[in-house]
């Protein structure tokens, strides 16, 4: 996967800012995408391009269980969120619904990656190439079950 970075240098980016409460009544995925990140970045939907990555700090996606959050990001074109850590429901929604990849990066990669950097993410090698800075970062491998669900294309395609 190749794409460019939209970086939010902050921890605890919660589902209330990823997809604000008033839109919970909406279940049209394309419409949800137009409100993605609205609580934090009004210009996100103008800026985001298919294949982009979000880079953020720890506990990304904390708060409510709304699957609208990974859906809105996914239908905006985000292929993966690269964060120091993820809140549990956001993580499993992203994986089980096959909306995007929640990838854990370490502190040095988080500091090093800048907004608009061009990245290539290869989960088979557990690495990220920063094409802008000509650097390589290791990523934390997915736990076994998570890797299998991702490979299957979501929980419904996975055979236990």
């Amino acid at each position: 996967m190749k794409g460019s970075v939209i970086k939010y240098e902050r921890d605890n980016i919660d589902t209330d800012v990823i997809l604000p409460g008033p839109y919970l009544k909406i279940h049209d995925y394309a419409e949800l995408a137009t409100h993605a990140m609205e609580g934090l970045d009004k210009d996100f939907h103008k800026r985001v391009k298919p294949g982009d990555f979000i880079v953020a700090g720890k506990n990304f996606g904390c708060g409510s269980s709304r699957e609208h959050a990974p859906i809105a990001l996914s239908y905006s074109g985000i292929k993966a969120v690269l964060a120091l850590s993820f809140a549990r429901i956001f993580y499993r929604n992203a994986v089980d619904g096959a909306f995007l990849l929640p990838i854990e990066i370490d502190e040095s990669a988080y500091k090093d990656i800048s907004d608009s950097d061009s990245l290539e993410v290869d989960i088979s090698k557990n690495e990220i190439q920063n094409l802008t800075k000509n650097k390589v970062y290791k990523i934390k491998p997915f736990p076994e079950l998570i890797g299998k669900i991702i490979e299957a294309g979501g929980l419904f395609n996975y055979k236990p």
Partner: peptide, 20 residues
């Protein structure tokens, strides 16, 4: 424990779900 829509849909059809 709370779950998202895909996981709840899976439970409604299969009666089970994964947890760590």
């Amino acid at each position: 424990a709370g779950l998202g829509h895909t996981d709840v849909a899976y439970v409604l059809l299969n009666g089970k779900i994964w947890f760590k």
